[in-house]
Amino acid sequence: MGFTLFYLSVLVLVPIAGLFLRVFQLSWPEFWKLATTDRALAAYQLTFGASLVAAFINAIFGTLLAWVLVRYEFPGRRLIDALVDFPFALPTAVAGLTLANLFAANGWLGQFLVPLGIKGAFTPLGVVIALTFVGMPFVVRTLQPVLEHLDRDMEEAAATLGAGRLRTFVSVIAPTLLPPVMTGFALAFARAIGEYGSVVFISGNIPKKTEIAPYLIVIRLEEYDYLGAMALAVVLLVISFALLVAINVLEQWANRFSR
């Protein structure tokens, strides 16, 4: 017990407190100036925009993937089921490396996509691709157990009352799936906002165009602009905390119908 608290405070609380204390030494206008430079604003915009898009893609395709994996039997199902965790297991640097290569003009996918005008490497789209990759397991893995334990009886009951498949899905299944999908969405979104390794390879990090907020923090550090880096970090931290709270609230809401 004591050990737990001690370890936790040394490793987590002290560093966070240190960061905040440092930033609180700044006056509000100073902080505001550092945290909202044009370059920073562009970076926030890209980070949140791309994260949101990636989380949406994951919500849609993750739901589909979870549904297909739980409900249908088809060749390769087990392989894909095992591979869903691959983005968790693969170091982000490797993910960025291979995705950048896949979507580059001479890559396996890029050679078909680039002539069509779909450029993955060094564009905001590339950022979305990388963030979709790293966030993919969240929706699938939060939804899968819920789908597995979903009461088939409920669907059959709807059928005996005359409801067709689509109607059953919309009014009986979807309300049950919505909370876990939203939790998965929020988790993927939170992860995407902080993501660094996979993005820096594919985005090209062009200031105000494809530069994400975490990368800008690294740049500020390399310029020895510690305060600038910290101001940005505090913005990201506050958002992370807010998301963490949101996820917890979501999970409680998701459980409201059980028991």
Partner: peptide
Amino acid sequence: LITLIDLPFSVSPVVAGLMFVVL
């Protein structure tokens, strides 16, 4: 305490590194 344990999951790794630089 449970929330605190989850915290490192939701903190950007870059920010995590930065916190140790600050210290």
